[in-house]
Each structure stands twice: as structure tokens, then as C-alpha cells.
Design a protein around this nucleic acid. Structure first.
Lengths: 152, 152
DNA sequence: CTAGGTGCTAGACCGCGCTCTAGGTCAACG
DNA sequence: CGTTGACCTAGAGCGCGGTCTAGCACCTAG
């Protein structure tokens, strides 16, 4: 079998993580890896299976808005080995909360956007030349919806 | 009653939209408003009720990741008046899709994060000095979960 | 031996969306 | 009238996260 060699060049890692080689080098420089990266005789980076998995995690962290600095901190903690799990937990919990908040915020925005979409669908369906409201509407508070489009 | 004067200085608008005066000026420069802003005799910006509502919308658009350029485009369409509803609709639909995709992506990330949180909660609960997995785990594919923490 | 492909470092550059500064104008108040 | 505070413009600066370049080393194949 011998499935994976468990050693990868930067190019190979780029291929399987989807990160560019530039970004991979950046991440190493910025301390996002959980330990010192091995180097080949010629000074080339040698990634292990573990690094690739870790980088996949990093990608998710990034995609969920975690700043590089936070990932670095987490990497430090992991790199230090057992004993600091509470701190890792705290960090992850805080991030989870931010992600949840963000999702909630997006849902909130989505409501507005959807209401606009619905309104315009209606408008377009019944002949686009009818009487239309302008975009600001469906807003909170006064002046509920119908609002002339021409102004100033 | 005479609730709102329907005319606001930039400072007042900043207060009620939560945007800074700098940002408000930027938005005007960048064409995010749906028309030419009125100016007082002394050349000062005069915002109407409408502008404030529109800016509130802009804030939501921004919060949901819409680039300034897209908001500008929408503002242009609205500023042009009736007749281009189909295009506005298209733009809004596209954005709605992006927001939905983004929410889905965040949920996906949240799954990973939550699994980590759960794992660490477990670890911390049963005495933080036990046998622990490292952070990369719960990943897709080979090497499911238990993974030693020490390496290199 | 040479060429091509891949990798290395250091450091410049970029896009985005603000945020701030300098230097001036304007309006109202005492 | 002078002062104060809000406002004006033009333009610089910034934080973030990449992205790219220059110039060089390495290594394998032909």
C-alpha cells in the first residue's frame, strides 16, 4: 500500500491544502505551525502528515474569521504540549462565540436583503414600470415601506 | 408632533447611523448615496431622512460583506429611478446567495470548532493531565482522532 | 555539463475600508 | 468683535492578509 509518504514538499502541501506556497511560507514565518518545521539537507521545507492536517484546520479557522495572531497563539499552546488545555479551550470557546455571533448577524442582514429581493420580485413580476418604492424601506421604525423613488 | 426635522448635519447622521463622519464623507465620495447630497449655504452636507435610512441599509449591506463597489452600483440604479428594477433584483439576489453561502461556510467551520471545544471540555473535565489528543484530529480522512500531542 | 523545475530569502507591493491630519471656513454666542 | 466648535477638502497613513519579485541554490534528467 504505502499510501502517503508522510513527507511533503511545500508545493505538494500547497496542492492539497489549497493554500499558495507564498501563504504557506507566510504562515510559517508568522508562527502558525505548532513547532519548528523540518528542513531537508538543502534547506527545503519538509511537511509531515500532521502539518497538513493542522493547516487544514488553520484554513477553517481563517475561513471563520480567526485572525492569524489567534491561530499563532493556539499553535503555541499546542506546541507546548499537554498542560494548557484549559487555555486552548478558552480560546476556542471565545472563537466559537464570535462565529455564532457572526452567523446571527448575517442572518439579520439576510432578512433585510430577502425582503428587498421579495419586493423587487413582486415589482418586476407585475410589470417593471408600475409604481415602485425606493430601496430604503422595510427599515426599522417610521415610514414603513412605500417610499417614492424620485428625490432631491 | 414634528418628530424629526428631516434634515441632519453629518454629525447627527454619524450619531444615528453609528458611522463615523469620516466614513460618511468617504461614502459620499465613493458614490454610495443615491443622489447628489444637498449642501447648506456654507457648503455643509445636509442629509435627509431618506439618506439616513439608506445609510442604515448600507450598513447592513456592508455587514453582510457587500463591497463598496457593489453598493455604489446599487445606489446608481436607485438614483436612476424606476425602470431598472430587474437589475437591482439581480444584484440583490446575487448578494443574497453569497450571504447564504457564507453562512453555510461558517456553519461548516463551526462544526470543526465545536468538535474541538467538546473534546477539550472533556479533556479538561477529567483532569487536564490525562492522555490528550493534539489539536489536529476530527479532520477529514485518515487518522480520525487520537493523535499524540508531542512531536518533532 | 547544462537546462528546467522547484525551492529558498528578503522585502516590496497590493486591495480594501477605513481613520486621521493639516489647514482652513463658517456659524453662533457672549 | 473674538472664541469655540462643528464642518470643509485633500491627501496621507494604517491594519490585515496575502501576493509577487529578484536573485540565488539545489537537484535531477538528458
Amino acid at each position: 500500500m504505502l499510501d502517503t509518504p508522510a513527507e511533503f514538499s511545500i508545493g505538494q502541501v500547497a496542492e492539497r491544502t489549497g493554500l499558495s506556497v507564498h501563504t504557506l511560507r507566510l504562515y510559517e514565518r508568522e508562527g502558525l505551525l505548532t513547532g519548528r518545521l523540518r528542513r531537508s539537507s538543502g534547506g527545503r521545507r519538509v511537511y509531515g502528515e500532521w502539518d497538513v492536517q493542522w493547516l487544514d484546520n488553520c484554513t477553517k479557522f481563517r475561513a471563520s474569521g480567526m485572525p492569524l495572531a489567534t491561530i499563532r497563539r493556539l499553535a503555541e499552546l499546542v506546541g507546548e504540549g499537554p498542560g494548557n488545555e484549559a487555555e486552548r479551550l478558552e480560546l476556542l470557546r471565545a472563537h466559537r462565540q464570535r462565529v455564532r455571533d457572526r452567523i446571527a448577524e448575517l442572518h439579520d442582514c439576510l432578512d433585510l436583503i430577502s425582503s428587498k429581493v421579495t419586493a423587487y420580485e413582486e415589482a418586476v413580476r407585475q410589470g417593471t414600470a408600475d409604481r415602485l418604492w425606493s430601496t430604503p424601506s422595510t427599515g426599522p421604525g417610521t415610514d414603513p415601506d412605500p417610499e417614492p423613488d424620485e428625490r432631491r
